[in-house]
């Protein structure tokens, strides 16, 4: 589903790869969380040409200075990682439906791929590249780029 949405939004061919092992030393033992930066480094190994790799994990991921992240990617990087861990946590005692979790996952996948394509965060509250903190905010975003981000993306890809 993530691959289909990435393909639809960015008009690029996608493929689903075989499972990827979590890198050793990527876990913050005292926090029971995985270091997203280390996972990205591992995913970026042996990438040749204009290929981008997006990893999806059910583990909770974060960065050394943050409490959590839904996903992580560097601008113009080769790899990104997304976690479904917090996308399926119960909210007010209600477990979210699978379809909602998939929608959230797709949105994060599009957002992180946008970074890989060279886009930074967008100020438009409707754009998928808007920085979303919390699931409530994520649920309000449309899984599409705003016109400004489309123009920026067009300029980047033409370079």
């Amino acid at each position: 589903m993530a691959a289909a949405n990435i393909q639809a939004v960015f008009d690029i061919a996608t493929d689903v790869a075989a499972p990827w092992p979590a890198p050793r030393g990527a876990v913050f033992s005292h926090r029971s969380q995985y270091n997203a930066a280390e996972i990205i480094k591992s995913l970026a190994v042996n990438i040749h040409g204009p290929v981008k790799r997006v990893g999806i994990t059910s583990r909770d991921i974060t960065l050394p200075f943050l409490t959590y992240v839904f996903g992580e990617a560097r601008i113009g990087g080769n790899a990104a990682v997304i976690s479904t861990h917090r996308l399926q946590l119960p909210c007010n005692g209600i477990i979210p439906e699978k379809s909602l979790v998939y929608t959230r996952l797709s949105k994060i996948a599009i957002h992180e791929t946008g970074h890989l394509m060279g886009l930074s965060h967008c100020k438009s509250s409707r754009c998928i590249m808007n920085f979303s903190v919390g699931l409530d905010k994520l649920d309000t975003l449309s899984p599409v780029l705003c016109n400004e981000c489309k123009v920026r993306l067009n300029a980047i890809t033409k370079r």
Binding site: R31, T62, L63, P64, F65, L66, T67, Y68, F131, V133
Partner: peptide, 11 residues
Amino acid sequence: LLKPFDPEQLI
């Protein structure tokens, strides 16, 4: 900022 902090807090 006290590490680790919420992404929102930093922004």
